[in-house]
Amino acid sequence: MPTNPIFSAKNVSMHFGHGKKLVKAVDDVTFDIADGEIISIVGGSGCGKSVLAKVMLGLYKQTSGEFKYHGNDITNQRDHWNDVQSVFQDPFSCFNQFFTIRAQLKDAFGILKTKLTKEEIDQRVDRALLAVNVTPADIEGKYPFELSGGQMQRMLLARIFALRPKVLLADEPTSMVDACVRANILDYLMKLKQELGMTIVFVTHDIGLAYYVSDRIFIMHEGKIVESGVPDEVALNPKSPVTIQLIDDIPEIHKEWIKR
């Protein structure tokens, strides 16, 4: 367990509903994440990984347990979002179709504590766009529905480049794009990490991706973290039956899968 963690969770639970309809989306999880680490939270659908990410993002307040960012509770969401930002899964539903992309990228600066002038904001948006290989003129006056999925995903990354957060929570950032574009997006994220010394938390069902990028992997199942450790341990030498099953279920090219 890292000393001086950036995130520290102690018996954190997140429940929805009550009585018979009680859903324990996150159930008593404890972990620490060190500054600058890359963590992947891996699990099937409904395992609670996205909810956990939303707790880390401060969008949800945990039902019980202690969740600290730099040793403090998250009391002020706006302060939290100055440091901690997110890329969501579906780039198409992330933008408001009634405003231009550029206007929405500029909107994001509202969250920063340091107030910038209009010129500075424009400059930073331009630089962020160039960082993800988009010529600013190409999206000038464009609305979300005029771009392709891969382009939209890069717009979400440009937003992160522009905001330069300390922590990035990436919820299935590559599930809507094909393999080549996925590798491309990972390149950008790694570039970001090097530039900003960011901590990145990937939330994904793709253990191949987790294995490739992370320092540590958490496997989640039914709200609990059932296994965690370095990739070589978790992905190649899994101990938990959940992890073993998960890895077994993935169709890999060099591995036997179900036979016809």
Partner: peptide, 13 residues
């Protein structure tokens, strides 16, 4: 529950 609302929130709206 759409992502653009979550995004607007973490944009500080």
């Amino acid at each position: 529950s759409r992502d653009h609302i979550s995004l607007a929130r973490i944009n500080g709206a």
